[in-house]
Each structure stands twice: as structure tokens, then as C-alpha cells.
């Protein structure tokens, strides 16, 4: 009961925090330079892990897919399955999970460190709102970088799938491309990108909140980073499931 109350309290605080971040993001001063800097930092941190994560997934879909589609003599259709799976599900989920793991932890650790070392107070004394200066840029960077990464993972996932389907699996290249382009609709692309932005928003907010509300010492900074990763990944997977169900239900 006590635990439930505490969770509710945290949830309420998080919602209030989100409101404050939203207000700060859309009213001046907005620290654009910080936002660009954060985007750069986060993109660099995420690009390799996210590529390493998605390439094998494309490959596995092709490998498994071929053996099953062959049963029906439909290997030519493999790419339509591959494309949908990558664009709609794997690419957004993997890109977001990597953003959570890399960007979320680094944002929470950076803000947490600034907090325990008095730098957040120093900002405040210099009349700089810490939410505007350190949280908003991190949130915006996550919201923008996550979908950009998913564009990359879309291409990489399909490419690695192609490698295992066409040159290795012997599927006809023309058929592969034809079914790929026929099956993937703009909606698939936009839904994937939208999910990434949504997850990026969640990662940035939770990282910022846990970073600013860190405990007192170095160990607490590690805890904030760790909690950010675990809670955002769980959240991403749950919300992803809910969104997919809802969209399927809506016939999209």
C-alpha cells in the first residue's frame, strides 16, 4: 500500500515535471546551442550500438522467413514480411531501446553528476533555469535523434535481410524489391518514426527527472542512470505493444 502510494506520487511528480518541460520547451529562452550539442553527442553514442543491434535482426528474419515461406513456395513474398516487421516493429523498438540504454543513461548520469556536484545550483544562481538548460535540450535531442536513428535501422535492417534473402538465400532480387516497395506504405514509415519520437520523449523525460532528483552521492548517480534504462526499456516495450495492438485494431 505504501509502495503503491509512493509510485503514484512519483507518477504525479513526473506528470508535473513533463508539464514544466513542455512549457519550458515552447517559451523563450530556448537554448538551441545546447540542444544541437546534445543531439550530436547522443547520435554519436547511439549509432554504432543501434546498427549492431538491428543488422542481425534483419538477417534472422530472412533466414527464418525463407524456411517457412518455402513451405508454401512463397519465398518471393519474404520481403513484404521483412519490410513490415523491420519498419513497424523492430526498427523503432530497437532504436528506442538503444536510445534508452545509451542516451537515457548518459543524460541521467550527466544531470545527476551536475546535481550532486553543485553545478545545478550554480546554474540556478546564474539565473539559468536548469530545466531549460539541461533537461529540455536532452528531451528534444532524444525526440529528434530516436527517429533519425530508426531511419538508419530501417535501411540497415532491410539491407541485412536482403543479404540473407537474395545473395545467400537465392530469392530473386527483382521480386524482393517489388514486394518490399508494394508492401511498405508511407503509414508504416510514419508510424515507426512517430513511435520513436514518443519513446524518445519518454526516455528524455525520465532521464531528466531521475537525474534532477538524484540522491546525494556518486552511487546515487549510477542508480539514477540504471533506473532510467530499466524503467524506460520496460515502458517502451509495454507502450510499443499497446500501440501496435491499437493500430492493428484501427486497421492501420
Amino acid at each position: 500500500m505504501d509502495k503503491l502510494l509512493r509510485s503514484l506520487h512519483t507518477l504525479g511528480a513526473l506528470v508535473m515535471f513533463a508539464g514544466q518541460v513542455a512549457r519550458s520547451a515552447f517559451t523563450p529562452p530556448v537554448y538551441l546551442g545546447e540542444t544541437l550539442r546534445m543531439m550530436n553527442v547522443l547520435a554519436k553514442r547511439c549509432v554504432i550500438p543501434v546498427s549492431l543491434a538491428v543488422a542481425p535482426v534483419g538477417a534472422v528474419i530472412s533466414l527464418q522467413g525463407i524456411s517457412i515461406f518455402k513451405l508454401f513456395g512463397a519465398e518471393r513474398m519474404l520481403s513484404s514480411f521483412l519490410g513490415t516487421a523491420i519498419f513497424r516493429e523492430y526498427s523503432p523498438a530497437l532504436a528506442s531501446v538503444m536510445v534508452a540504454a545509451q542516451a537515457g543513461s548518459s543524460i541521467a548520469a550527466r544531470i545527476g553528476t551536475m546535481k550532486v556536484r553543485g553545478q545545478i545550483d550554480a546554474l540556478a544562481v546564474m539565473s539559468v533555469d536548469p530545466v531549460r538548460f539541461v533537461v529540455v535540450p536532452g528531451v528534444l535531442a532524444c525526440v529528434i535523434v530516436a527517429p533519425l536513428l530508426s531511419v538508419l535501422t530501417n535501411l540497415l535492417g532491410v539491407f541485412s535481410g536482403w543479404v540473407f534473402a537474395v545473395p545467400i538465400g537465392g530469392v530473386d532480387h527483382g521480386a524482393f524489391m517489388e514486394h518490399l516497395t508494394a508492401q511498405i506504405t508511407p503509414a508504416d514509415l510514419w508510424i515507426g518514426l512517430g513511435k520513436c519520437s514518443l519513446f524518445g520523449l519518454g526516455v528524455g523525460l525520465i532521464a531528466g527527472y531521475l537525474g534532477l532528483n538524484v540522491g546525494k552521492g556518486a552511487a546515487d548517480v549510477g542508480k539514477a542512470a540504471n533506473d532510467t534504462v530499466v524503467s524506460t526499456i520496460v515502458l517502451i516495450l509495454l507502450v510499443d505493444y499497446a500501440v501496435s495492438m491499437a493500430l492493428l485494431g484501427a486497421g492501420l
Binding site: 556536484r117 553543485g118 553545478q119 545550483d121 550554480a122 540556478a124
Partner: peptide, 16 residues
Amino acid sequence: RRRFGMLFQDGALFDD
């Protein structure tokens, strides 16, 4: 606060 400058006891310089 804009009228203040503050030297914190442990400096509080920005690490990055």
C-alpha cells in the same frame, strides 16, 4: 540573482 556573483565553496565549475 542576476545581481549576484557566487563563488561556491567547492567551485561548482561546469565539468564539460
